[in-house]
Each structure stands twice: as C-alpha cells, then as structure tokens.
Amino acid sequence: MARLAGEEELDGHLAWLWDTVTGPVLDALGLTGPPGARPPRVWWIPTGPPAFLPLHAAGHHAEGAGRTVLDRAVSSYAPTVRALAQSRRPADAPPTPSFLVVAGPEAPAARPLPGAAEEAAAVAGMLTGARLIAGADATRAAVVTALADHTWLHFCGHGAAEPATASGSRLLVHDHLDHPLTVAGVSRLDLPSAELAYLSARATARSGFTALDEALHLAGGLHLAGFRHVLGSLWETDDTVSLRIAERVCAGLGAPHPVAARALHDAVRETRDRYPATPSLWAAYIHVGP
C-alpha cells in the first residue's frame, strides 16, 4: 500500500509539472504533435529547485498518449545555453568506437547489486570488442586510465549523491573508501575522444542543495570532462527494468554517431507504456548533451 501511495504521489507531481511548467512551454513552442509522430528535440536548462525535478517525464500519463512530454518531445538537459551551443557545433569525425564496461556489484560498505553484474555482462555482449572491468579490478586508477582509451563508458553499480556538497558525489568504484571517483575528480579529466557515457547507478544526475544553478552531478561532470552524451538517473531504479532499458538503449544506438537522446527516449517511453501507473520505474532516466 505504501508503494502504491508513493507511485500515485509521484504521478500527481508529474501531472502538476505538466500543468504548470512543461505543458505551457511545449504549447508555446507549438509542439502539439499527434501521438505516434516522431517527436522533435527539446533541451531543458533548469535552475534553482526545478533542477531536482523530472521535467522530461512530466504529464498526465494515466490518460494515455497526449498530454505528456514523452509523447511530444525528445528531452535532453544542458548546464547552460552557452554549453549547449558549444556542444552542438559541428564536430570532427568521431574516432572509431571503443567500449568500456565497468561493474561494481559488491563495492565495500554498500549493499550487493547482483543486477549490476548481469547488466554489465549483457551490455558487454552487445558491444563488439568491449572491455569489461569488474569487481576488485574496478579501482579508481584502473577506471580513470581506461577512460582515456575508450570512447564509450557503461557503468553499472552504486552512485552516491551528496546534497550538501555536490562536488563530492561519486561513483562507488572498488576502492572508493580511500580513492573516491567524485564529481570534482571526474570533471577535471580531459577526454577529447569521449563520446557517450551511460551511468546505470542511482542519483547520477542529482545536483546539490548548495549548487542548484550548476550541473554539479556525475552526469554533468562527465559531460565537462569531454563526453558529448551522458545518460544518468535522478534516483535509484529497479534492477530488472534497468537491465531492460540498458539493452534497449544499446540496441537503439547507431555507432559511430549515436543518437543517444532518441535511443533513451524510445526505451523510456516503451517502459512507460508497459508500466504507466509506476513512474518510479521509468521517470528517472535523463540525457545530457547535444
């Protein structure tokens, strides 16, 4: 009953967001396309408290296709208008894709995540030539070194958000207690060949209370480090659904020019259509980038 009440409350918040924020914006832009049409792209650049809210998932989902952002637009996020303009400039031909999959199913001082190992194995099997770093081998040094040699990253494991000090939010690599992979550390990396990062971990796109106007979260940090496209989440998601969405996204990405936003949008909308009354399963996923 508590879970049901929570889903109903979240659904109510998504409807309110549509009525007060995203619905009027899309109407003003003339984005009222019929259900089933190929939706256009929209970039959200929230500041202040709205930075915590799933604008991309707003809508009256119980009604079916129509008054929802998912049915009218493919959503992405950007830290600033300038950053968005820069990231949308024509780029040189991207390098040949090379894939890195990192799995941390049993990070120290964190509960086990058996689904992380399953997802990592499934994703690595779908990506030709992917390198898998898992378990005790997935240290901060190993991951940072491998990032320089790969254009795509898929991380499966724990993420830890630090609302009071957002720059301290981190991915739980195996030695995170002594050598954390934080937002601050990630954003200082220089990865000019990086193309796409998929963070299958909780709260990788949640900003801190003290930096509401900045993209101080793990997804934003990887974007600043050089990844053109970053997929993250606002909260912890179900292991089974996470695996299904990851597989759907990987199948929808077209190397060497990944249409990451559309691949994620299609996977999330498909999941929403299957579980419309359970928004916690699909409303958390976001895309950051051009």
Rank of each mutant, 00 (worst) to 15 (best):
R170E: 08
D266V: 11
L216F: 12
V183I: 04
R262H: 12
L218R: 00
H179G: 02
A225K: 00
P258M: 03
R272N: 10
S167H: 09
L216E: 10
P192S: 05
L172G: 02
L216T: 13
A260N: 03
G185F: 01
A255W: 11
R206V: 14
R269I: 10
W282V: 10
S169C: 10
H174S: 13
A260D: 06
R188K: 08
R188V: 01
F209Y: 10
L216G: 05
S193W: 00
T278R: 14
Y198L: 15
P258K: 07
R170V: 05
H229N: 12
A194E: 04
S233F: 01
Y275H: 15
A267Q: 08
V186G: 01
T278V: 12
G232K: 03
P279E: 10
G254I: 03
T237D: 08
R170H: 14
A197I: 04
A261C: 02
W282D: 11
L231V: 14
L177Y: 06
R248P: 01
A263H: 07
F227C: 01
H174K: 04
D239S: 08
R262M: 07
A197S: 03
G232F: 03
V268Q: 02
E236K: 13
L196T: 14
L216Q: 10
S169M: 04
L181E: 02
G254W: 00
V259L: 05
Y198N: 01
F209W: 08
W235S: 12
F209Q: 14
R248D: 14
A255F: 11
C250V: 12
H179Q: 15
A263S: 10
A267I: 09
A194F: 01
D239F: 09
V183H: 01
G220I: 04
R188G: 09
L234R: 15
L212A: 11
T204Q: 04
G208E: 05
P276H: 12
R274K: 10
A201G: 05
H174N: 13
F227H: 11
H174V: 02
S167I: 12
A246V: 07
R272K: 12
A219S: 15
L281F: 13
V241C: 08
L189S: 04
I245Y: 05
A261E: 09
T204E: 06
R248Q: 13
L199C: 00
H176N: 07
S167D: 13
L231K: 05
A263P: 05
L281A: 10
D190K: 09
H223I: 00
H223P: 01
